[in-house]
Design a protein around this nucleic acid. Structure first.
Ligand SMILES: [Zn+2]
Ligand SMILES: [Zn+2]
Ligand SMILES: [Zn+2]
Ligand SMILES: [Zn+2]
Lengths: 154, 154
DNA sequence: TAATATATGTTATGTTATAACATTGTAATG
DNA sequence: CATTACAATGTTATAACATAACATATATTA
């Protein structure tokens, strides 16, 4: 199972990708937004908003406040750079080549490691379900909780 | 789209079903648990914990407290009678014949109406994804947010 | 009855998220 | 350049969601 933490080069690439996308789309990747993104992607497990808040406060040597963090998160989610895992109120970076919003997640309840997936056939089936119900999708949450190989063997 | 509210007979049937399952499995369906279940299923849109709290307080003519409601909800979820919609912090009753835990939801962001689905091929694909990643599933959250037919036409 | 387990009551607090308004920075317009 | 408009951030306060901890009550069962 490829539930390992990201390499330094993968992190660099993902940060660089976001910078490029923002530049070409004229999105304001401000200092705080960048800091929040880096904190999220450098964490190898899903991170909570108030953990980000603590880290931001430390980095800048002054207390930050919740709205600062939540606004940055909103920006990052809107642009597909970050996903929220609703089942655990946590955030993860999107490591797929061109940031998007339709990822699925396996989340280990024991060690919190996670795996981002992007299964087209799954996406197709969900689309069909929606069409069949005359439903227009704006956002899909597919989170699979359970235990990873390591944790289920212990 | 069958996103209509439940008929009185459907409600009665779902309450009766829960009573029978509890009786045959020796689960303590206490007064409060029953009240909470009825409040949830009689609401035709997903309901929030503190809304349940208000209703319980009114029914019993005395203030209830959050733990009372959350404990009842926990019981109902554990036994597959109720689902939590993580994307909107709300609860819905399970209207499937034999209460279970693997339902999917279409949720209209505008009018809050919802549709409970149970697509086996979707379930299969999710299982395959899990197996492929050596992952043991304990719980799946699949919530599709968007707009229902009525709301997308307006 | 006494012991045990299950469920509920109660108080307090922890956690997650947003409203509202002030301030600052930046870019376009006259 | 000054003015205006807009985007982003700072700040205070509070709303919304959820649980810890411990006391009390109720039901089983030894
Ligand atoms: Zn992604
Ligand atoms: Zn694990
Ligand atoms: Zn169900
Ligand atoms: Zn609707």
């Amino acid at each position: 199972m490829s539930m390992k933490s990201k390499s330094t080069s993968e992190l660099k690439a993902s940060i660089h990708r976001v910078e490029e996308i923002c530049k070409s789309n004229k999105l304001g990747l401000t200092e705080i937004r960048k800091q929040v993104f880096e904190i999220i992607v450098k964490n190898n497990i899903p991170i909570k908003a108030y953990e980000i808040l603590d880290k931001i406060s430390n980095i800048n040597n002054k207390p930050s406040h919740p709205p600062t963090v939540y606004r940055a998160i909103d920006f990052l989610i809107e642009n597909g750079f970050v996903h929220k895992l609703n089942s655990i109120n946590s955030f993860v970076g999107c490591f797929h080549p061109n940031a998007h919003k339709e990822c699925y997640f396996l989340i280990c309840k024991k060690c919190n490691i996670y795996q981002e997936c992007c299964d087209d056939s799954l996406k197709d089936r969900i689309s069909k379900t929606a069409i069949h119900n005359n439903f227009v999708i704006s956002n899909t949450t597919l989170e699979i909780e359970g235990h990873c190989l390591d944790c289920s063997q212990k």
